[in-house]
């Protein structure tokens, strides 16, 4: 049966929203007058926004506080990077291989974890520990030396450029895809199941939802997206090392997702962009005198949001939506 209201499986309104959003974002480099540094910052912000949007699937929809975003991202990054650096393999093949390995780790960790009913704080701690474990394993294998990717002036084959604009546009496309997947999940059986699991896992199970399976699906989709983002990330920075497995990135990703409002991908993207911009701004201005001050601000925002407004930015978006009639569905 045809559903006229939908394009590519998501509501027409959301589809046009993504297109308009991507078009607005694609004007940004021109607005920045193609200044290399500013375009780099913009690229970084889009990267984080995509990562937070991907996190929204496991954290927001499935309600599992996953702190291992950087683990899956780094797996994509180190696999892609090492294949390119040591075997000259193009990232176009390296990224899929990285995705497969990240998926393997996600299933190997996620299956027993969900099978044994690990949730809430224990899930969060387990995923935080996962980042450290992977970092240590990588360190044991490759040591603390960092590998640098070969440089090319302008190579689409090796995804290495001397400017950041190609990456910027790639990540805008990636962000659009992540948003599309988010909407797609929200309006599918999987999304309704995940929503039920987040609200009350026991009740969901009692209703016959295979809780473990759908949590695992959410984890797998999220790990896939995060590792693709990681594969692009490594081509931007050109450095591979054990530092890619950064526990703090995993925590800040979750922080941005929570500040954005759990289950709201718009809020997640917004908070990712705002907080990262703020972070870069603070780092550039007062960060040199007071290292860590930008993250201090994060902490304060997080406490304030947690104590005063646990719904996050999403409630603000809802408020605006109610005021503007044509945004009402």
């Amino acid at each position: 049966m045809a559903k006229p209201n939908k394009i590519l499986g998501i509501p027409r309104r959301n589809f046009y929203g993504i297109i308009v959003f991507a078009l607005i974002l694609s004007t940004v480099p021109a607005l920045l007058r193609f200044n290399t540094y500013y375009v780099y910052l913009a690229t970084d912000i889009i990267l984080i926004a995509s990562l937070v949007a991907a996190w929204n699937i496991i954290g927001g929809y499935a309600g599992q506080l996953d702190l291992a975003a950087s683990a899956y991202m780094a797996l994509g990054a180190v696999v892609t990077g090492n294949l390119l650096a040591f075997y000259g393999l193009t990232p176009w093949l390296g990224i899929p291989i990285g995705v497969l390995i990240a998926l393997g780790v996600a299933v190997a960790v996620g299956y027993p974890t969900f099978r044994f009913g690990i949730k809430e704080v224990w899930y969060a701690l387990l995923t935080a520990a996962l980042v450290v474990i992977l970092s240590r394993i990588y360190w044991l294998i490759y040591g603390s030396t960092e590998t640098y990717l070969p440089t090319y002036e302008w190579s689409w084959f090796y995804l290495r450029f001397n400017r950041y604009e190609p990456f910027y546009y790639m990540l805008v496309v990636m962000l659009a895809i992540v948003l599309w997947i988010n909407y797609r999940i929200r309006h599918s059986k999987l999304g309704y199941y995940l929503n039920a699991i987040r609200e009350d896992e026991l009740a969901a199970e009692a209703l016959g939802i295979d809780v473990r399976r759908y949590k695992l699906y959410a984890l797998m989709i999220y790990a896939t997206l995060a590792s693709i983002i990681g594969g692009i990330y490594v081509c931007i920075t050109g450095v591979v090392g054990y530092r890619n497995f950064d526990p703090w990135l995993g925590i800040t990703t979750a922080v941005m997702g929570i500040v954005g409002g759990l289950g709201s991908v718009e809020g997640a993207v917004m908070s990712g962009m705002i907080l990262r911009t703020l972070e870069d701004y603070l780092r550039g201005t007062i960060g040199s005198q007071y290292p860590g001050s930008h993250l201090l601000v994060y902490g304060i925002i997080l406490i304030v949001v947690g104590v005063l407004k646990p719904e996050g930015l999403a409630s603000l978006i809802e408020y605006v939506k109610k005021r503007i009639p044509w945004l009402k569905s």
Binding site: G63, L65, E120, V121, A124, I251, A254, V255, I258, L262, G292, S293, L295, L296, Y298, G299, I300, I301, L302, I303, V305, G306, V307, P310
Partner: peptide, 16 residues
């Protein structure tokens, strides 16, 4: 989740 968020915020404040 909210408790974790708030104490992670506290952690970031202390650490930084």
């Amino acid at each position: 989740l909210i408790q974790i968020a708030v104490t992670v915020g506290l952690l970031m404040v202390l650490r930084n």
